[in-house]
Design a protein around this nucleic acid. Structure first.
Length: 274
DNA sequence: AACAGCACCTGTAGGC
DNA sequence: TGCCTACAGGTGCTGT
């Protein structure tokens, strides 16, 4: 479900909601929700006072005053809510009760979401690429790419850049006028600049709109994200491109659906490369 | 080493 | 209505 803008939105709300609170108890309803040693997870979290809530890629980080650190990954359908409605009840996977009596429920229909305890904050999420929120960072990453995998697949690779998912990869490639199948190492300088400039724009714009709700995603305050109405290609297969009117295409790239405008996103001709 | 494919899960939408 | 299939915003393991 959620990509960087959605996770950022949730992390911000969570920060306001739980910072300074002490975890009184943790109830795990679906054991596999907790990755690693569950007993230790329980032991370390009980009594922990939340000092900070952060985000790294699509991970939410929660750090205790004593340095205890765990992450929450929502994967496809995970969400954090303070109250359970009747529909949520059957999908509740874990529940925090705080010392003040308030609760935070982890609800996840597909059971893919994971919470994990780490030795410390600095050792969490190994292998994640840099945050894609500054164009200079993205440009630096794109410039050193030597792979000929499709640029779309590379944008989804969390070890390259952390936080971009299927929606924003498609939207960024459209905004940059780049065909998703373009081999990453063959991007021209101009294409690299364009992509590096639009990725932070697309993500920041979505954060301002509290993310994109397609079906499941809700903020901690149970709001929908407003970015869906601003999508140019994702989920618009067959509908006319807002720029040129051509029908938006949908193809499969390494097992995932990819949306693009066949006219606005042309592949550079191979002969003009060398 | 790099990459494709499938596993993990359940819900929903569409075809018949 | 109901059955069946395909697909869904993510990642991680396995096999080639």
């Amino acid at each position: 479900m959620p990509e960087l803008p959605e996770v950022e939105t949730i992390a911000r709300q969570l920060r306001r909601r739980i910072r300074g609170k002490t975890i009184a108890s943790v109830r795990v309803c679906w054991p596999r929700t907790v990755a690693g040693n569950r007993a230790e997870f329980n032991r370390r979290l009980r009594g922990m006072t939340v000092a900070r809530v952060s985000r790294r890629g699509k991970y939410i980080g929660v750090e205790g005053a004593d340095g205890t650190f765990f992450t929450i990954h929502l994967r496809m359908t995970g969400k954090l809510v303070k109250d359970l409605d009747s529909a949520d009840r059957r999908h509740q996977r874990l529940c925090f009760t705080f010392a003040d009596g308030t609760k935070l429920h982890f609800v996840d229909a597909r059971k893919f979401g994971r919470l994990r305890l780490w030795p410390c904050r600095g050792e969490s999420c190994p292998g994640l690429g840099p945050e894609p929120l500054r164009s200079e960072t993205v440009r630096r990453v794109l410039k050193k790419l030597r792979t000929n995998r499709p640029v779309k697949s590379v944008l989804l690779d969390q070890t390259v850049l952390a936080g971009i998912g299927n929606i924003y990869a498609d939207e960024a490639l459209f905004a940059a006028g780049i065909h998703p199948l373009t081999p990453a190492a063959s991007l021209s300088d101009a294409q690299q600049w364009r992509l590096a400039s639009v990725i932070p724009q697309v993500l920041r714009q979505a954060i301002r709109r509290r993310g994109t709700t397609l079906r499941n995603y809700r903020t901690v305050a149970d709001e929908s994200g407003e970015n869906r109405e601003h999508l140019n290609v994702y989920g618009r297969a067959g509908e006319p491109c807002f720029v040129c009117g051509a029908p938006i295409g949908k193809i499969r790239i390494s097992g995932r659906s990819s949306h693009n405008c066949p006219d606005c996103q042309k592949m550079r001709s191979v002969t003009s490369d060398k």
